[in-house]
């Protein structure tokens, strides 16, 4: 807790719509409290802009506790800013210094077309899930939850993968605009669990191919892992690569024998 007020120079990408041209605008932001979150700082900027008769900066946000995955943009060239394992909404101004110059820019990727200012459309992620990111069990008919014991390390690994919040920072940070970390996390969460085995190989092929329809390819820079607000490991990318090759080779009628 500190009561010292900070002064920030903020350079923001402004673009009215997908088709309009965009450019940076710079604002002088005095009176920033170190206890503010980054988005609260933007709220203050927006209030001031509106009082000056200017349109506020559009940015996606919702839960503001780092779990919904709605927020996120580049802050000084890093997805979600300089603090590791932190979504933009959980980044606090105390991490910056008085007088800092911050440049913020939307995620840039073919799979994430720009909507307005800092907002991009991430529905391509939904397309990846739609192609196989689920276990096909209809409501009802599920056996007792304790019927299949799941070893704790397996459950923990699945949970590590499932922690993904779908914010898109992995794509934004990747020099290739690849969505490998998102896709592999969503896929391996299910592929690791006994419940996910029945559709494992189809899921793998379908999710990889739908991912590749919109996004680039992984060349193992590890930028995604560093940008991920949930610190999801690139180990899952390796597991996906392994499963993808296996999926091409497996005799799928023998899937019952590949129980982990």
């Amino acid at each position: 807790m500190s009561n010292a007020s900070m002064r920030i120079t903020l350079t923001v990408w402004r673009q009215a719509s997908a088709d309009a041209g965009g450019g940076f605008e710079t604002y002088d932001v005095p009176g920033v409290s170190p206890d503010m979150s980054f988005l609260e700082m933007l709220d203050v900027v927006n209030e001031r802009l509106m009082h000056d008769g200017k349109e506020p900066i559009a940015f996606d946000h919702d839960c503001r506790e780092g779990i919904c995955g709605a927020c996120g943009f580049m802050i000084n060239g890093q997805a979600h800013g300089p603090e590791r394992a932190t979504a933009t909404c959980q980044l606090h101004m105390r991490k910056f210094r008085d007088g800092d110059h911050l440049t913020i820019e939307p995620w840039r990727a073919a799979g994430f077309p720009l909507v307005k200012d800092l907002i991009v459309d991430r529905t391509a992620f939904d397309r990846i899930i739609e192609s196989g990111g689920y276990v096909s069990v209809g409501t009802g008919g599920a056996p007792d939850g304790n019927l299949i014991p799941i070893p704790k390390p397996v459950a923990d690994a699945a949970m590590d993968a499932a922690a993904c919040i779908g914010c898109g920072a992995c794509v934004a940070a990747c020099p290739n605009g690849a969505a490998q970390l998102f896709t592999s996390a969503k896929m391996q969460h299910l592929n690791l669990l006994p419940q996910g085995q029945a559709e494992r190989w189809d899921r793998t092929v379908n999710m990889v191919e739908s991912m590749e329809t919109y996004f680039g390819s992984c060349t193992n820079h590890r930028e995604c892992e560093a940008a991920c607000p949930k610190s999801i490991s690139i180990d899952f990318i390796a597991l996906m690569n392994k499963d993808y090759a296996k999926a091409q080779l497996k005799q799928r009628r023998l899937i019952g024998q590949t129980f982990p």
Binding site: A173, P175, S217, H221, R222
Partner: peptide, 16 residues
Amino acid sequence: KARPQQYQSRRDYVAA
């Protein structure tokens, strides 16, 4: 093709 428009501000790589 996956990133038709490059970042307009300087990237700051962390892990790469």
